[in-house]
Design a protein around this nucleic acid. Structure first.
Ligand SMILES: [Mn+2]
Ligand SMILES: [Mn+2]
Ligand SMILES: [Zn+2]
Ligand SMILES: [Zn+2]
Lengths: 143, 143
DNA sequence: GTAATAATGATATGCATTATCATTAATATG
DNA sequence: CATATTAATGATAATGCATATCATTATTAC
């Protein structure tokens, strides 16, 4: 059951920007909120298509972008692979360990590393806004 | 003057793989070694083209890939922008602070962060191979 | 209900990267 | 040196993904 708050984040953003609510938005939003993590546009499109074959790829794409804009979702790009989207709202910031063999994502967060990053930036007279830490290697199954 | 050692890294790799030395390789290699950091295929192609208009884009691309394979160069991909290449041989591992306004790269390295990353991976029963840390924000000029 | 205009869906375009292929050229061998 | 082998080249095509276009449809304000 998709969280009401999460949906409010999105509809709030829609309202603020003077955009409109549509049947498709609702369907795509619900599908995203019910989906597993790290979903691609194509993944979500295929899920939506099952019950709603009339909804187009472009609309799924546009609405995922809009979800990111609203702060509800976040886009993840690893190397050259296609963009993945995950729920941001209600999820703490985290980084990823990525298995070079099976592609598994492990979500991690280390407060010390985060602090040291800020310190490092400060040393370089640099104002940090966001960061991306990806550690590539082999998970326990693929060792 | 390009470093002889750096050139040996490349020619050693060529030899090992049973590949051939060509005029184009030599020209492209020299141009890369003389160039500034964080160069794109197109950048290097344009430099090469000035004196050697007969050399094609694909050849520059292929040879940059080959330089990466040999360990001489490294490919850097930030978001969706085109791949950049930097000299790896003779340069310590480092990460990047990237200005959201002017695109400046600041190279940084923090031994503590590096150690903590390994520790973090170990905690997750993950065998780290390489990592990428990018901190986005504003440099002192763009603050 | 009507007007204004945002959203949609099908498709086209953009753009970086990589693949294809006929031709050229580097290396090995006699 | 002549010749055979095959890697490399250069022009161009194909690929893959993200985004733009545009005619049509649907939402919202009045
Ligand atoms: Mn982090
Ligand atoms: Mn590092
Ligand atoms: Zn794995
Ligand atoms: Zn800057």
């Amino acid at each position: 059951m998709p969280s009401v708050e999460a949906k409010d984040i999105f509809s709030g953003h829609i309202k603020e920007k003077g955009l409109r609510n549509t049947r498709q938005r609702e369907i795509i939003l619900d599908a995203f909120l019910s989906s597993k993590k790290h979903i691609t546009v194509e993944d979500l499109f295929n899920i939506v298509k099952k019950k709603h074959p009339e909804i187009g790829y472009a609309t799924v794409h546009r609405n995922l972008k809009l979800m990111c804009e609203s702060g509800l979702a976040e886009e993840i790009k690893i190397g050259t692979s296609k963009a993945k989207y995950e729920l941001k709202y209600g999820h703490e910031h985290h980084d990823h360990l990525i298995c070079l063999n099976c592609g598994t994502f492990i979500e991690v967060n280390d407060e010390k590393i985060e602090k040291l990053q800020d310190k490092l930036a400060e040393q370089k007279d640099f104002q940090p806004v966001r960061h991306k830490l990806e550690i590539f290697g082999f998970c326990n199954k693929c060792r």
